[in-house]
């Protein structure tokens, strides 16, 4: 692992779009010979945040990262929103690419909630790769059985 420190940052959430982002992130890192920084953040202002991976889900994610063969690191900052956390990780590592998962949203849904993806696009300096979940596997419940 010598040479220039190339970094791909992935914004991960335990949903199909997050998995899609991770898959693309791993591919990109492999192709570029870069290491992967996976960011899974939580605003931390509620007792429950199902997008924040802990316990078994975290172990699964870590083993998935190990299995990919790409050098990878998981960061789980609490207390900042997704856009902030991704921006900070990108700045911090001098990332050459940020991969995020996009929600499929209706125009109305777009109006109602501010788009985190949009804020990432605006705040991150490097190129941003936005991927969507494979069709048919959109925003299911983040955790089956719940």
């Amino acid at each position: 692992m010598t040479g220039p420190d190339r970094v791909v940052v992935v914004g991960y959430v335990p949903t199909p779009r997050g998995e899609a982002a991770l898959a693309h992130g791993i591919d990109e890192a492999r192709r570029r010979g870069a290491r992967l920084v996976v960011v899974n953040s939580s605003l931390g202002d509620a007792l429950v945040d199902e997008e924040y991976v802990q316990g078994a889900a975290e172990r699964r994610l870590r083993s998935e990262l190990t299995a990919s063969g790409v050098p990878a690191e998981l960061r789980q900052p609490v207390g900042r929103d997704v856009a902030d956390a991704l921006g900070a990780a990108a700045d911090d590592t001098g990332a050459e690419l940020v991969v995020i998962g996009l929600r499929r949203r209706s125009p109305v849904g777009k109006l109602v909630t501010g788009s985190a993806a949009q804020r990432v696009l605006l705040s991150v300096d490097c190129p941003v790769l936005a991927v969507k979940a494979p069709p048919g596997r959109e925003e299911g419940p983040p955790a089956e059985g719940l």
Partner: peptide, 10 residues
């Protein structure tokens, strides 16, 4: 600050 871990009703 920060969430607690939620188990699945699995």
């Amino acid at each position: 600050r920060g969430p607690v871990q939620v188990m699945q009703a699995s």
